[in-house]
Every structure is written in structure tokens, then in C-alpha cells.
Amino acid sequence: MNIIVCIKQVPDTSEVRIDPETNTIVREGVPSIINPFDENAIEEALLLREQHGGKVTVISMGPPQAEAALRESLAMGADEAILVSDRCFAASDTLATSYVLSTAIRAIGEYDLIFCGKQAFDGDTAQVPPGIAEQLGIPQITFTIGLEVDGRKVRGRRMLESEFEVVEVRMPALVSVVKQINEPRRPGIKAKLAAKKKEVTIWDSACMDIEPCLCGLDGSPTRVVRTFAPTREIKGEKFEGEPAECAAAVIDRLIGQKII
């Protein structure tokens, strides 16, 4: 089975802040990680390979330093890693990103399954996986919390608002996974060292059949015009002391404001 996993290198969001003076995102000194949902995507691909054999290729679109995330996926056990990187991809929105990734996937050739994390931790859009599936013209199973493969059939258990839905599609298909689907393996020192010696293939736009007007700024119908820090001016009231009194005071305030 040929499996492709799409991953993204993201800043560790818990440390990203807005500079209040310039209203721009402060990225300096913020460590980069593999998008946590993508670790589950890699893990699910590796589990399937263990059961059914085949090859796991991990791809990422990003700047040259995203190679570090790909090396980590090699350390986890992926067979091949491709960094899709070109200056003309910069500032791509979700549509342009899914265009570039789907074009790269076509260039890889034959595939049975594509895995993605349900969304990236920085953008939180969840728009790229369906965008890729659409541009490849294949079915998708999004928000997947459990997966079974039987011949060419793929059954995914999707996590919806108040229920789970089991759906079946035929390969080739794209599956986006939620955090709860598995526990990603943590590579040991040996695997990490071995991954350092492996090759990460780098593709620029010339390596693929890319139309420049469909990627980067030109290919992005959306544009961020302003970023700012959220207003979180909460003047909270804090109660300490006798639990019954504190509880009653809060209940009274909630009733008083007609919240309950």
C-alpha cells in the first residue's frame, strides 16, 4: 500500500503572541514542532504499513527549515520525505496550499491513501485536507477517530458533534485524523540519529507541474489584512474561604445576571 502523509511544521502555539506595539505576530524564539494532529496522521500511516505492508511517504510544504519536521517523521519510521519548498509558494492560503500539495501528490504518482491531521495548530482552519481531496478528485473521510482497511475499502469512524458516524469509501481516498485516533510513537535517540543520515528530497516548483498563478499570493483568494491581540479584559471576582459561602455568592451573581 502506498501511503502519503501531509504534515506541517508549526510554531508551538502556546508561545505565540502579538506584539502590542506593531500588531504583528512575534515568532522570534518560538520553537517549531510537527503539527500535533499530523503526528497522529504519521502514526496511523505507520500502523497501516505494519499491518498491510507498503511505503509511507511524508510531504510538507514550507520553508527550508521545515526539513526538521520531515526528519522527525523519518525518525518515527516513514520511508521517504519530500519537502515542497519554493519562494513562490510563500503566503499561500488554504486553497493555494492544497493546490501545491495536490500537485506534489500527483508528481509522487501512485497512492492508495493520503493522511492529514484534521487541522494545523497555528491556522486551525481544517480546510487543507478537503481542499487536497477535491483537487485530486478523491473521496475524503474527515475528523477520523478510528480506521479499518479491508482490501480496497476504507472504513472510518468520524467524530461529529454528538455522535460517531462510520463511513466507507474506496481507495484512493484522503483521511484526516483527530488526536484521539492513536498515540504517536516517540522515536529513540538511535532512530533520530539514523534519520539525520537519510535524505530529504526537496522539490521546487520546477520539479512539479505547477502553475505559478495558482500558488502563493497570486493563487490565494483570501488575504489577511489585519492581525491583533484578542481583547481579554476580564476583571474577575475571586472568592476564597468557606466553600458554602463562596458557592452561594457565585450562584447569586449568576442568577442576578440571569445567566442561570
Partner: peptide, 12 residues
């Protein structure tokens, strides 16, 4: 975006 640490205004 960024886990709620940043707000962004977007146009099409």
C-alpha cells in the same frame, strides 16, 4: 488563530 492568541481579519 494560533490557538486564540491572535485575531486575524481576512478579505476575499
Amino acid at each position: 488563530a494560533f490557538g486564540g492568541n491572535v485575531m486575524a481579519t481576512i478579505l476575499c
